[in-house]
Deep mutational scan, measured.
Amino acid sequence: WVQCTKPECRKWRQLTKEIQLTPQIAKTYRCGMKPNTAIKPETSDHCSLPED
């Protein structure tokens, strides 16, 4: 599990088994990010989705 770092969101998201949760990902994670590439989402507001 990882928490969105966006102050107005802070929702918890479940990561897939393939993703290694590192301190860097935990510090920078935003809803919809692909942690294995550290690319921020380009599409709609993933923070608007219900918490996992």
Rank of each mutant, 00 (worst) to 15 (best):
K11H: 01
T5E: 01
P7T: 08
E8P: 05
W12V: 01
P23Q: 07
C9F: 01
L49H: 09
A38F: 12
L21I: 03
P50R: 12
Q14N: 04
K17F: 00
C9D: 07
R13P: 03
C47H: 03
T28I: 12
R10A: 13
S48W: 08
K11E: 09
R10H: 05
R30P: 03
T28V: 08
V2D: 04
P41G: 14
T37W: 09
C4S: 01
K11S: 06
A26M: 14
C9M: 02
C4I: 02
T37I: 07
P7V: 05
K34A: 13
T28R: 03
V2A: 04
P35S: 11
A26W: 06
Y29H: 03
C31P: 05
G32F: 00
H46M: 15
H46V: 11
E51W: 05
E18A: 06
Q24N: 15
E8R: 06
K40G: 14
P41W: 04
K17Q: 05
P23N: 01
C9Y: 02
K11P: 00
Q14K: 07
A38M: 15
Q24T: 13
K11N: 05
W12Q: 02
I19H: 06
Q20S: 05
E8F: 06
D52W: 03
E8T: 14
E18L: 04
H46R: 11
L15N: 04
K17W: 11
V2C: 04
T28C: 09
R10S: 07
Q24P: 01
P7N: 14
W1H: 05
T16A: 14
K17R: 10
V2M: 00
S44Q: 06
K27W: 02
T22P: 01
R10I: 03
E51Q: 06
E42H: 11
W1G: 06
L15T: 03
R30M: 12
P23V: 01
K6V: 13
L21F: 06
Q20N: 04
C31M: 01
H46Q: 11
L49T: 09
N36V: 08
I25A: 08
R10D: 06
P35I: 13
W12C: 03
R10Q: 08
E8L: 03
S44G: 13
K27Q: 11
K40V: 14
Q3K: 06
T43L: 10
G32S: 04
E51P: 05
C4W: 00
Q20F: 01
G32L: 01
I39E: 10
L21G: 03
K6F: 03
K11M: 03
K27S: 12
Q20W: 10
R30I: 08
W12A: 02
D45L: 09
C31A: 00
Y29C: 12
K6G: 01
E51H: 12
P7S: 05
Q24M: 11
T16S: 12
W1S: 13
L49S: 11
K6N: 10
E51G: 10
M33S: 09
E51F: 04
I25M: 14
Q24A: 12
M33A: 05
S48P: 10
Q3S: 00
T16G: 15
K17S: 15
C31K: 01
W12R: 03
T43N: 09
E42C: 07
D52P: 05
K40A: 13
Y29A: 03
E42S: 10
I19V: 13
K17T: 08
W1E: 06
Y29M: 02
M33F: 11
P50T: 08
Y29S: 01
I19Y: 11
K17L: 02
M33N: 06
N36W: 09
C31L: 00
A26R: 14
V2K: 00
I25D: 07
V2Q: 01
S44A: 13
Q14D: 00
L49Q: 13
Q20Y: 02
P7D: 12
Y29F: 11
S44H: 12
R30V: 15
I39N: 08
C4T: 01
T16P: 12
D52S: 09
S44L: 10
I25H: 01
T16E: 15
E8C: 03
M33E: 07
P23Y: 00
S48Q: 06
A38G: 14
E8A: 09
M33L: 07
I25Y: 10
A38S: 12
Q14G: 05
A38K: 14
Q14S: 04
Q3C: 02
A38Y: 09
N36Y: 13
D45S: 10
V2Y: 02
Q20G: 04
L21M: 07
L21D: 00
K11Y: 00
C31S: 01
K6A: 15
K34I: 15
D45K: 12
Y29G: 03
P41Q: 07
P23G: 05
I19E: 15
C9Q: 01
I39G: 14
C4D: 05
S44M: 14
V2S: 00
I19S: 08
N36H: 04
H46A: 15
R13M: 05
T16L: 00
A26E: 08
T43K: 15
S44R: 09
P50Y: 09
T22N: 06
K34T: 15
M33H: 03
Y29D: 05
Q20E: 07
P50N: 07
W1D: 05
I19A: 04
L49E: 15
E51K: 12
S48D: 15
H46E: 15
V2G: 05
Q3G: 04
S44D: 14
T37D: 12
K17A: 14
T16Q: 05
P23R: 01
K27H: 14
C47Q: 09
Y29E: 05
E51D: 14
K27Y: 03
S48V: 09
E42V: 11
G32H: 08
D52Y: 13
W12H: 12
P35V: 13
P35W: 12
K40D: 11
Q14I: 02
Q24C: 06
R13T: 12
I25P: 03
K17M: 08
E51V: 11
R13N: 05
K6Y: 09
C9S: 03
T28F: 08
L21Y: 06
N36F: 09
T28N: 13
S48N: 11
A26I: 14
P23D: 00
K27M: 11
W1V: 04
E8D: 15
K34C: 09
P41A: 11
N36I: 10
Y29T: 01
Q20P: 08
S44F: 10
A38D: 12
K40N: 12
T37R: 10
K11G: 02
D52N: 14
K27T: 07
L49C: 13
D45C: 07
H46N: 15
I25T: 11
K17C: 14
C31R: 03
H46G: 12
L15M: 11
T43H: 05
V2H: 15
T22K: 00
Q3Y: 00
L21C: 04
V2I: 10
D45R: 08
G32C: 11
R10W: 01
T5K: 03
Q14V: 04
E18Y: 02
E8M: 06
I19G: 11
T43I: 09
S44V: 13
E18F: 07
Y29N: 02
A38W: 10
P50M: 14
H46F: 13
T28P: 00
I25K: 05
P23W: 00
